[in-house]
Structures are given as structure tokens and as C-alpha cells.
Simulated assay, not measured.
Amino acid sequence: MSGKANFESTRRRLSGQQAETVDRLTKAAVAILRTHGFSALTIRMVAGEAGVAPATAYTYFSSKSHLVAELFWRRLDALPHEADSEQDRESQVCSVLRSVALLVSDEPELAAAVTTAMMADDPDVEHLRARIGKNIRERLVEALGPEHDADVLEALEIAWSGALVRAGMGYESYSQIADRLEITARLIMAGHDNS
């Protein structure tokens, strides 16, 4: 994970002790999601699990959606970000999309919570959506190369966001979605190359 993510949250920069508190809160949230799911999750419950006063927890997270979106952001930010020069452009794009699709695939409760949380009408979640979108865009641009077509980039972004919503709604597993994203990316790129 980059050092910046440890000391920066959506709302403010964090000292070492504050970053530790946020880490405890996010770990507690994952534990509660595993046993109770998103609908039962509350900031108060997370604070209790983390051994933190509820008022303190609310200084870091405005809502449970904000907390879950922050969890996803931290995991995304921790993913390796370098393009593999050994792979062709299409394979690099597929690798980016697969890694994002599988980010929470082994934790179904968290995956479902992320889908719900990311749709919240909360300024802190909106900020995180923008950060997440920018991070994934940067990964795709790296994979596509400097002379990429803006329409291809946008189509790939629409494909990954739609695929993750589809998986979050339970239509298919995240592994199936990762496979479908790869097929979709190859079709988008082949269609562009043939035009």
C-alpha cells in the first residue's frame, strides 16, 4: 500500500495514531460485515468492535456507506499499479480489469456491501467514487499506452463499472464477471482496431 493511503482519509490527513484508529475501524467493519451483513452494520457497532468511542468513529466516517467505500478504496490503492511490459496491450487491459473485478471476490458480504455503499448519495462517498474512478482510469491508461483512444477508454470504464454492479447484484460471481470483463475488453479493443 502506498504510504499516502495510510495517513490520508477522505475527510483529512491522519497522524500515525489516527491512521491506526482508522485501520482498527476498517478491520472491525469487515468482521461485522462477515457476520451481520451491510444492512445491520452501524458506525456505533463498528466503533464498539474496534474499541473506539462512537463520536471518534464519526469524526472519520460520515456513514456506513462512507466506511465501506473507504475499505474498497484502500484495497484498490494497495493493488500493484505497474503495467507488465511482457504482455501485449490487450492482455494488460484484461489484467487490470480482472484484478479490479476480483478485489473483493473472496468476501461476498463485503462485495455486496461495496456495491450498495458506492451508490450512496453521500459527499464523502462521492469523493471516494471519484478517487476510485481516477485510479482505475490511470491503470487502464497505463495498459492502453499513451496513444490510446478516448472512446475505447470510456467503453472499458463503462464495462468494468457495469460488470461490478452486475456482480454486486448477485447475477454472477465475481470470478464469472472477471471472465466476462476480459471477453468484453477484447471485443471492445478488437472492434476499435478493425474500424
Score class of each variant (00 low, 15 high):
Ala5Phe: 15
Ala5Leu: 15
Glu8Asp: 11
Ser9Gln: 00
Ser9Trp: 02
Thr10Asp: 05
Arg11Pro: 01
Leu14Ser: 10
Glu20Arg: 12
Ala28Phe: 09
Val30Met: 02
Val30Cys: 00
Val30His: 04
Leu33Cys: 05
Arg34His: 04
Arg34Asn: 14
Gly37Arg: 04
Gly37Thr: 08
Val46Arg: 00
Val46His: 05
Glu49Trp: 01
Thr56Pro: 02
Thr56His: 06
Thr56Trp: 10
Ala57Pro: 09
Tyr60Trp: 03
Ser63Cys: 03
Lys64Phe: 03
Ser65Ala: 13
Leu67Lys: 07
Val68Tyr: 00
Leu71Ala: 01
Leu76Ser: 12
Leu76Gln: 02
Asp77Thr: 08
Asp77Glu: 08
Asp77Asn: 11
Leu79Trp: 10
Pro80Val: 09
Glu86Gln: 13
Asp88Val: 14
Leu97Cys: 02
Ser99Trp: 01
Ala101Asp: 12
Leu103Asn: 12
Ser105Glu: 08
Asp106Pro: 10
Glu107Leu: 14
Leu110Ala: 11
Ala113Tyr: 12
Ala113His: 05
Val114Tyr: 07
Thr115Lys: 09
Asp121Phe: 11
Asp124Cys: 15
Leu128Asp: 09
Arg129Met: 10
Arg139Tyr: 01
Glu142Trp: 14
Gly145Tyr: 07
Pro146Gly: 13
Ala150Asp: 15
Asp151Ile: 09
Glu154Ser: 13
Glu154Asp: 08
Ala155Ile: 06
Glu157Lys: 13
Glu157Ile: 13
Ala159Ser: 15
Ser161Gly: 13
Ala167Ile: 06
Met169Arg: 15
Met169Pro: 03
Ser175Pro: 02
Leu181Met: 15
Met189Pro: 02
Asn194Asp: 12
